[in-house]
């Protein structure tokens, strides 16, 4: 399951995208996030629980603020770079 966390507004669109099928649950992204916005969460897939990376509930709705500091770095946010399984992507298309 691919989850998009982020927003679209007049300034453009910004998403942190987590692919839980690729995620190994290693937690490196959790360690590196300067805002402590990433955590490991239980996801219910095919009647099983799997531990995967996710944006913390409290930050989901304010990505524009939480992730503001990482945004200018050409889609190579720390969480993206930390992921060995390429499960995290950052989409930033300013208008």
């Amino acid at each position: 399951m691919i989850t998009h966390y982020g927003y679209i507004d007049g300034s453009g669109e910004y998403y942190i995208v987590v692919d839980s099928d690729k995620c190994s649950g290693c937690g490196k992204c959790v360690q590196i996030c300067p805002q402590k916005a990433v955590l490991l969460e239980t996801e219910f897939i095919d009647l099983e629980d799997k531990t995967v990376a996710a944006i913390a509930e409290e930050h989901r709705k304010k990505i524009r603020y939480t992730c503001g500091t990482c945004k200018p770095e050409q889609n190579q946010t720390p969480c993206v770079l930390a992921c060995d399984s390429k499960a995290i992507k950052c989409i930033w298309n300013p208008k």
């Binding site: 524009r64 603020y65 939480t66 503001g68 500091t69 945004k71 200018p72």
Partner: peptide, 8 residues
């Protein structure tokens, strides 16, 4: 919110 604007 404002500080994240400043950080940007």
């Amino acid at each position: 919110r404002i500080s994240s604007m400043v950080h940007r």
